[in-house]
């Protein structure tokens, strides 16, 4: 299959707008589960408002949240795909710019020092474009994530040491969730990276934070910590919006990587309740949204 940059540009544009308007089904189901288990009256009212907002966004064809985020595109390239990588990444950038101009969307991206906003949702090294490969034949998957800043500001890295053990990893996560309180727009998905280098650890936390609900860490030790921490964070009483209740998080997600004999890094990256993402597959048969 030959990848057409024009097709990629249109899709990059469509995915940004789609992600901002339609919450994925797993998150909607997550709200139903949290509402069922919530006993605090204020928390139940807040969860009800969030669910109502999802319906209002669909009914009025509006954005779920005003924060258009930092645009992230995850591209997964299957086998037997021919593409010009330079043309593909340029096409994604153009699609992102066009979504911003043509919808229009608030550009939330600025130069980090001058704070100048180009009003395109793009800037130096933004959008973030991650490229991976998988086994699917003649398939390119593009996932778009508008990562909101309230929860992205709830990001932490600690280069623990081996003597600290896994206990310190768990303690780090609990303490950071307490520290963030309502600022990260709970209920959240708490993404935890364990292992790797400092940069890989942070990236793992982002993968974890943006993984669909209902998936578990593919590695048994990671899955165990995931289950333990998921239960623990909802005992803190932080609740939706940090105003009290059980529903602090939908779930804690863990991703792991091997690390160095001297190292024990842990990272936290949080996803707010507006856990937006949209994805599509490009195959010889055309484009399908998933």
């Amino acid at each position: 299959m030959q990848l057409d940059p024009n097709e990629v540009e249109e899709l990059a544009k469509a995915l940004y707008v789609r992600a901002l308007k339609l919450l994925p089904p797993d998150i909607k189901q997550g709200f139903a589960r949290l509402t069922r288990d919530e006993t605090d009256a204020t928390a139940r009212t807040i969860l009800g408002t969030m669910v109502e907002n999802i319906a209002v966004a669909e009914r009025t064809n509006n954005l779920l949240c005003q924060d258009t985020g930092i645009p992230i595109y995850n591209v997964t390239i299957g086998r037997h795909v021919e593409l010009d990588g330079v043309a593909m990444t340029a096409a994604i950038r153009r699609g992102c710019e066009r979504a911003t101009r043509e919808h229009p969307l608030r550009s939330s991206v600025v130069h980090p020092i001058t704070r100048k906003n180009e009003q395109t949702s793009c800037g130096i090294r933004i959008p973030i474009i991650n490229i991976e490969f998988d086994e699917r034949d003649e398939t390119v998957a593009i996932e778009m994530i508008p990562k909101g800043s309230g929860s992205e500001n709830g990001s932490f890295l600690q280069m623990l040491i081996p003597a600290d053990g896994a206990a310190a990893v768990k303690r780090f996560v609990i303490d950071r969730v307490i520290e963030c309180g309502g600022r990260v727009c709970p209920p959240t998905i708490v993404g935890v990276g364990i292992g790797g280098t400092s940069d890989l650890c942070m990236h793992l936390a982002k993968i974890a934070a943006t993984r669909p609900l209902g998936t578990t860490c593919s590695e048994p030790e990671g899955a165990k910590i995931e289950a333990e921490l998921s239960e623990a964070v909802n005992e803190l009483g932080i609740g939706p919006q940090g105003l009290g209740g059980r529903a602090t998080s939908f779930r804690v997600h863990v991703e792991i990587a091997a690390t160095h004999i001297t190292m024990n890094p842990v990272a936290v990256n949080i996803q707010c309740h507006s856990a937006r993402r949209a994805a599509a597959l490009i195959t010889p048969g055309g484009i399908s949204f998933v």
Partner: peptide
């Protein structure tokens, strides 16, 4: 209410960490 919820979470912290086998001071 924000300060109240934070204080309550901090009050629960040690018991939650003990259950996880992860007791210890905050960083």
């Amino acid at each position: 209410l924000h300060a109240d919820v934070n204080a309550a979470a901090l009050a629960r912290r040690d018991a939650i960490l003990a259950k996880l086998g992860a007791s210890g001071p905050a960083r």
